[in-house]
């Protein structure tokens, strides 16, 4: 006999709230269920203050974003493209807290190919990782990471990536690999999530965005697709006069 612990059960299914228009189980018979405007579009990230990062953390993240994706004559850097904002909003949301993941104990160290085995989610990893990075920079240079010269920043990150710079209490190389992955994701995710501002990431590579129909193009080989990108909320030019 299964003892259903009601509280745990509800905790386990709370995640359904994100996806399902109706939360209760339903009997479907006779006709397909359908309700107008029952969809669940993603909410647009609001610009403004950090939601997860502190001021210091935010400055470090902006600096990291510009090192990972440096600005150049043609394209915005990671900071101006909103990559740190993207990471901030992701960490403030379900991803930061590992929502929906299996978090039951015991937490045991395992082989790398057995996957992440920690109660700590990405939010806490960032909190600890950014603090440790600033501590290491202060020790070596007497300044926080964001205050370092461009050259010193690159030197720190290169050492971190190669495992030559150890962070206190944090696996520096894997933390930096995570930052690289998340910041770059911010450049290529839909602008609705706060990064890829002005679709700068998509313009840079020639990706036309959230389009839906290439029927006329599937047989046109080796020709450049001519249309500019659109996001889920359209193209900024459409609403500018």
């Amino acid at each position: 006999m299964i003892n259903l612990r009601r509280r745990e059960f509800l905790a386990g299914t709370a995640v359904l709230l994100f996806t399902a228009a109706t939360v209760r189980a339903a009997t479907i018979t006779g006709r397909l269920p359908w309700a107008p405007n029952a969809g669940n579009p993603p909410p647009q990230v609001r610009l403004g203050p950090w939601e997860f990062f502190s001021g210091d953390e935010g400055r470090a993240m902006d600096a990291l974003a510009d090192c990972i994706i440096p600005p150049d004559a043609e394209t915005l850097g990671g900071k101006d493209a909103g990559c740190a904002v993207f990471v901030d909003r992701q960490l403030a949301g379900p991803y930061g807290q590992q929502e929906g993941l299996y978090l039951r104990p015991p937490f045991q160290a395992g082989a790398k190919n057995q996957g992440h085995q920690s109660e700590k989610g990405p939010a806490q990893s960032y909190r600890e990782g950014l603090a440790a990075l600033d501590r290491a920079c202060r020790e070596r240079y007497g300044k926080s990471f964001a205050e370092l010269s461009g050259e010193d920043k690159i030197a720190v990150l290169t050492a971190l990536e190669k495992g030559n710079l150890k962070l206190e209490g944090v696996d520096g190389a894997s933390f930096f690999a995570q930052v690289v992955k998340d910041v770059q994701m911010g450049l290529f995710a839909d602008p609705i999530y706060g990064g890829n501002r002005d679709m700068s990431g998509w313009k840079m590579i020639g990706y036309p965005g959230a389009r839906y129909n290439y029927l006329d193009w599937v047989n046109r080989h080796n020709e450049r697709f001519p249309l500019p990108p659109v996001g889920m909320t359209g193209n900024a030019q459409w609403s500018r006069s």
Partner: peptide, 18 residues
């Protein structure tokens, strides 16, 4: 849950890799 195109993955926001 029940799933259908107009509610869960309509052309307005289905193209969402993230």
């Amino acid at each position: 849950p029940w799933r259908d195109a107009p509610t869960e993955f309509p052309p307005g926001y289905m193209q969402d890799e993230l």
